[in-house]
Design a protein around this nucleic acid. Structure first.
Length: 577
RNA sequence: UGGGGGAUAGUUCAACGGCAGAACGACGGGUUCUGGCCCCGUUAAUCUUGGUUCGAAUCCAGGUCCCCCAGCCA
């Protein structure tokens, strides 16, 4: 394995290569890059990487990092690699590699031919380890894992040197080679760097470089039985790829001196590690461990359950790459730990969907309405606007007839204050249709409202009255004879509290929202929705944004509610108690 | 009690010695054939104590609080 060539010439062919700032909002990383461009440290290059370990599915927190790394490269006319940090075969699987590739691509980013794996560098990494041994800077340690921990000391006390620390170069070379050749079982010994057992930074107390793992690797199979630790692999992988800015999360700040020690003692190209605060979101969890638990213990249907904060989950839910990128840009990047309000994510998604989602009419909880003065067999085709935000979206025809369904919520027998939808004796407008007035409320034996009798005003076709009278509300509807039946899944926060992990005396699963999923099976949707393909997104007017689910069949569509519309009436109701 | 980081409206992020600003949220209003979108307005912050300076969120000193580190995980 040889180190890769990388281009160190300034990228004069790209628009942002004059060392200049771009239009994006300022942040501390851009300032560092700008400074590097001024000083010429990287010759004006900007080359980042997104380096996931393929041990799970990507989530919205990773999206922040992906948008940051790829976004910086785009803005500065640079490059961004996708690199799998696959140094621990015990946890990693091809399934995860595949899903990560899918997700990053879906988010809208392109690494071109630069898809790499830390395992691509196992050979080079081994050679560099041999060099360190030869330089007297690494040794094979036969202390057990427990002993290593004891010898490491504590936060306040220095560590002790291992009795094996001063083996000869020859012995270390021999032992290390035999480690590689598989002569020792797992856990027998490790290769450690010889740095400083008294360092106040525990990462510098002779960190382990290689451990013995007789495990099959998704990519290298059984070629290796020793595997590099993160610290030994990461910086050198960055170096090999010519990365300029190695952006990682805050918990690696303590690792930076080690990152630099390896690079320096190997005498190889030095990238700059920069740390930023990872994303936290209210009403959700983003730790891999907790996400796995939700899946394994059946709290959700899988990694792609629309309630999950995984990329595959929010994709299925109907979130858009554009919306997620807008979110990443909006939250910015800094070093302070923070928790972003979920409302901001939802705002960004609505913002994007509002511009692009075709409008449709759908009734979630149907209430039958008979227009008693409308001709029995008449059907009209009413013209509806597909998207008021996009004049190019055109119009469509929606069938209208004597028997309709409206939303149960759009009728109130004893209307509350400020409720201005349909009520006995009250007139409202049917969207794109006529004014109707409720004249009779039909109930069953239990007193449940089962049907409304209304009259329509033929003069109001198109939605305006010739006499100029106004109505307070416009409600959506579908024609009973023409509507299709569909299933709609409504989602609420997976957790009932803003920070489910805050109480350390209780498991986070105690705070799971029992009502996070509501399945409605008798919804009626306008006929033009027939044939909607999984993944297609719509706005159901007055209800929210919805995406067709892969569970849909030819005969029966299933929709996920992506996010509600802002709902002024819901707010008023809340205030009214 | 070692080391490394951090602290600006309710939330997230700007301001880099010179008028503390934006977005979201909340509240109020306008507009409207979606109680949506859009528009306008109100609310609301520099952790603390000193110091330097004509002038400090920004520089200096002390303090407080929060986060991370003792994997053969990443």
């Amino acid at each position: 394995m040889t180190s890769k060539e990388y281009d160190t010439t300034p990228r004069a062919d790209t628009p942002e290569s004059n060392g200049g700032e771009s239009a994006a909002r300022s942040n501390f990383i851009r300032e560092i890059i700008d400074e590097h461009n001024r000083s010429g440290r990287f010759g004006g290059r900007v080359h980042t990487r997104f380096p996931p370990e393929p041990n799970g599915y990507l989530h919205i927190g990773h999206a922040k990092s992906i948008c940051l790394n790829f976004g910086l490269a785009q803005d500065y006319g640079g490059k961004c690699n996708l690199r799998f940090d696959d140094t621990n075969p015990i946890k990693e699987e091809q399934e995860y590699i595949d899903s990560i590739i899918t997700d990053v691509r879906w988010l809208g980013f392109d690494w071109q031919e630069r898809l790499f794996y830390a395992s691509d560098y196992f050979g080079q990494l081994y050679e560099w380890a041999v060099k360190l041994v030869k330089d007297g800077k690494a040794y094979v340690d036969h202390l057990s894992a427990d002993e290593i921990r004891e010898y490491r000391g504590t936060l306040t006390q220095p560590g002790k040197e291992s009795p094996y620390r001063n083996r000869s170069v020859e012995e270390n070379l021999d032992l290390f080679e035999r480690m590689k050749n598989g002569e020792f079982p797992d856990g027998t010994c490790v290769l450690r760097a010889k740095i400083d057992m008294a360092s106040p930074n525990l990462n510098m107390r002779d960190p382990v470089l290689y451990r013995i793992l007789h495990a099959e690797h998704p990519r290298t199979g059984n070629a290796w039985c020793i595997y590099p630790m993160y610290d030994w692999a990461h910086g050198q992988s960055d170096s090999i790829e010519g990365i300029t800015h190695s952006i990682c999360t805050l918990e690696f700040e303590d690792h930076r001196p080690l990152y630099e020690w390896f690079i320096q003692n190997l005498g190889i190209y030095a990238p700059q590690q920069i740390e930023f605060a990872r994303l936290n979101l209210t009403y959700t969890v983003l730790s891999k461990r907790k996400l796995i638990q939700l899946v394994r213990e059946g709290y959700v249907r899988g990694w792609d359950d629309p309630r999950m904060p995984t990329i595959s989950g929010i994709r299925r839910r109907g979130y858009t790459p554009e919306g997620i990128r807008l979110f990443a840009d909006t939250i910015g990047v800094a070093k302070a730990n923070s928790t972003v309000d979920l409302a901001l994510l939802e705002y960004c998604i609505r913002q994007d969907l509002n511009k692009r989602a075709p409008r449709k009419m759908a009734v979630l909880r149907p209430l039958k309405v008979v227009l008693t003065n409308y001709p029995e067999d008449q059907v009209e085709e009413l013209e509806a606007v597909n998207n008021p935000e996009d004049s190019d979206a055109g119009t469509r025809k929606v069938p209208f007839s004597r028997v309709l369904y409206i939303e149960r919520d759009d009728f109130m027998e004893n209307p509350a204050p400020k409720y201005y939808r349909l009520a006995p004796g009250r007139e409202v407008r049917l969207r794109y249709g006529y004014f109707i007035k409720c004249v009779d409320v039909i109930k069953d034996g239990q007193g449940q409202i089962i049907e409304l009798h209304c009259t329509y005003d033929p003069e109001t076709r198109g939605g305006t009255a010739p006499d100029g009278r106004k109505v307070k509300a416009t409600i959506h509807w579908v024609s009973a004879a023409h509507a299709q039946e569909a299933e709609v899944r409504l989602y609420d926060n997976l957790f009932t509290v803003p920070d489910p992990g805050a109480d350390e005396t209780r498991p986070f699963t105690d705070f799971i929202n029992p009502n996070s999923l509501e399945v409605l099976t008798t919804c009626r949707i306008e006929p033009s929705l027939a044939g909607a393909k999984p993944g297609e997104r719509f706005q159901f007017e007055r209800l929210g944004y919805f995406a067709a689910d892969p569970d849909s069949t030819e005969s029966r569509l299933v929709f996920n509610r992506t996010v509600t519309l802002k709902d002024e009436w819901a707010k008023i109701q809340k205030q009214q108690g």
